[in-house]
Structure formats: C-alpha cells, structure tokens
C-alpha cells in the first residue's frame, strides 16, 4: 500500500518534469512581466504585435515578483524582453542612483544610456504614458476641506493619515523627506504598507490619503480624488519596453515591430485599459487584442 503510493508519486513527478522541460525549447522570445494588470496587458500587446507582424514566436513569463527579479531574469537570458519598465524605478533600483534630474527627457536619457552600458539592453521610447505617484484623498474629505491641489493639504495635514507603499518614505530623490522640504508640511501619521492593502484601508477609513500610482484604476473604484501636484514635485516617468541587445541583433525585425506601440498609449488610455481588467474583469489578452485591432496594429 505504501509502496503503491510512492510509485504513483514518482510517476507523477517524472511526468511533470517531462512536461516542464518539454515546452522550453525552440526559437522563442520570452517576455517577462510582473502580475499587475498594466504589465499583463502590455505583455499581451507585445506578444500579439510581434506575432502579428513577424514570424517570431513569443512566450509570456508572468507573475515575476519584483523589479530585481525581472532584471536578474533579463541578465540570465531567462527572458529577453521586459514588458514594461519605469524610468524612475530603474534609475533607483537597477542603476542604483540616488540623486537625478526631475526633467523627464534628462531622466529618460540617463536610464537609456545607463541600461545600455550596464546591462546591454535597449530602453525603447515610451509607450506614451507615465506611471508616477499621485496624492489622492477620499471624496468626502476633498469636498469637506475643498482640496484640489497638494498645497491645500497643508492646513489639515496634521489630522490626516497617509498610506503609502513600503518604499516611498525612504526614497532618496522623490520620497517623504524631499516632500517635506518642497511642500513644507508633514502628515499626522504615515503608514507604509502593501499598496493593495492601502486601498482596503482607505475603504474602511483607516487612512485618509493614499499615495497611489497614476494609472491605477482603483482610484475610480474607491472614489479617490487626485490632487494636483502644484509644485511639480513628482517627476513624470515614462513607461517603456526593454529588450536585450543580442536578441535585437538576432532578430533584426523585432525593433521595428515593437516600436509600433511607441507613443500609442497615453495615461488616460492606460488607466482605462486597467479599468477594463481590474473592475470589469475582462481578460488581459482580449483587452490587448481589442486595442491593437482598433488602432490597426494587427490584422484580424
């Protein structure tokens, strides 16, 4: 009886191993992405636009845990394309720079050159949207205190609590310390936590202000009002695909095909696409396909 079980387990293990190794061969370009809807939709767009306009085959590697995992996978050649990388994130994390320009073009050049030199990867021109930090407040608070821009918070900040992702308070260039200097006020309470949980916390009024990401569809879902960054504190960072240079050399047609997406998706469009995935629960692949067809980037 015991023996039978073990043999079964062994057979299952063996078969699964065969399956696992069986599908990872051949001339396939792998596109890696993190599990957010934004990254998943864009990864599907890349896949469809590449397969629809060239004879290359692609495969998606989804769910990657964090930017360092994506970067390491690119270096290992486990994946050849990062579906989306964000200028600001890569300058601090991949390049390890603390102080840098808030001018979008200068920052873009910095990351493009840095990534080319350090990792031999090509940073494509932006998709056309930016994903940056935005201050958002609960609707009823915005109405009560007549809040429209970040400066309006100054008078009430002491009684308000702010929920942020876990790294903003420590960010050297555009983090809390720099924020205090620029805007000249502090919040009564700051709680760094997982960004997904911040939305749940604002829903139950545990926090009043959410430092959110600009293309996040949940701003609409949780009825949050975005405050204008009137002192232009947060740099607007573009989002781009990144590809290994040796892959581009091997498949010369790739660069042109990927560039079909350049400048096609602005911040509003991206937010709307995220909304379809997050709130309307549409399949990311279908969202990508619909968008590409609508813009004539693939044929039926």
């Amino acid at each position: 009886m015991i023996k039978g079980n073990w043999i079964k387990a062994l057979i299952i293990t063996g078969l699964s191993l065969l399956l696992a190794t069986g599908c990872s061969s051949g001339d396939v370009v792998k596109i890696g992405h993190q599990p957010t809807s934004e990254q998943t939709i864009l990864a599907h767009m890349l896949k469809q636009v590449i397969e629809g306009n060239s004879d290359l085959k692609t495969e998606l590697v989804g769910g990657l845990g964090a930017t360092p995992v994506v970067l390491k996978a690119m270096q290992n050649n486990d994946i050849q394309i990062s579906a989306v990388r964000y200028v600001g994130t890569d300058i601090t994390s991949s390049l390890g720079l603390e102080e840098f320009s808030k001018d979008p073009q200068e920052a873009f050049d910095l990351v493009k050159n840095g990534v080319a030199e350090k990792f031999d990867q090509l940073w494509f021109p932006s998709y056309g949207f930016e994903n940056t930090y935005v201050f958002t407040v609960r609707k009823e608070l915005a109405d009560k205190y007549n809040l429209q821009k970040i400066s309006d918070l100054a008078a009430h900040a002491k009684e308000l609590s702010l929920g942020t992702d876990s790294s903003w308070l420590e960010r050297p260039n555009d983090g809390y310390q720099a924020f205090i200097q620029e805007y000249g006020f502090q919040f009564g309470k700051t709680t760094p936590m997982d960004i997904g949980l911040v939305y749940k916390a604002v829903d139950t009024k545990e926090v009043d202000i959410v430092l959110a990401y600009s293309t996040d569809s949940r701003l609409k879902e949780y009825n949050l009002v975005t405050l204008e960054d009137d002192k232009h504190f947060f740099p607007p960072y573009g989002a781009s695909p990144v590809v290994r240079n040796d892959t581009l050399k091997k498949y010369p047609q790739l660069e042109e095909v990927i560039n079909k997406l350049t400048g096609k998706i602005d911040t509003q469009t991206m937010t709307a696409l995220n909304y379809q995935a997050d709130i309307e629960k549409k399949d990311p692949a279908a969202i990508a396909r619909e968008f590409l067809l609508e813009h004539g980037l693939i044929q039926k």
Partner: peptide, 16 residues
C-alpha cells in the same frame, strides 16, 4: 503598517 523588520526587507526590495 505594523512595522517590524519586514519594513527594511520590503523597502530595501523596492529601492534595490
């Protein structure tokens, strides 16, 4: 938002 050493881990991860 409960603090603890995880703060260093997650923040360190976010900022590499």
């Amino acid at each position: 938002g409960g603090g603890g050493l995880g703060y260093l881990v997650f923040t360190g991860l976010g900022l590499a």
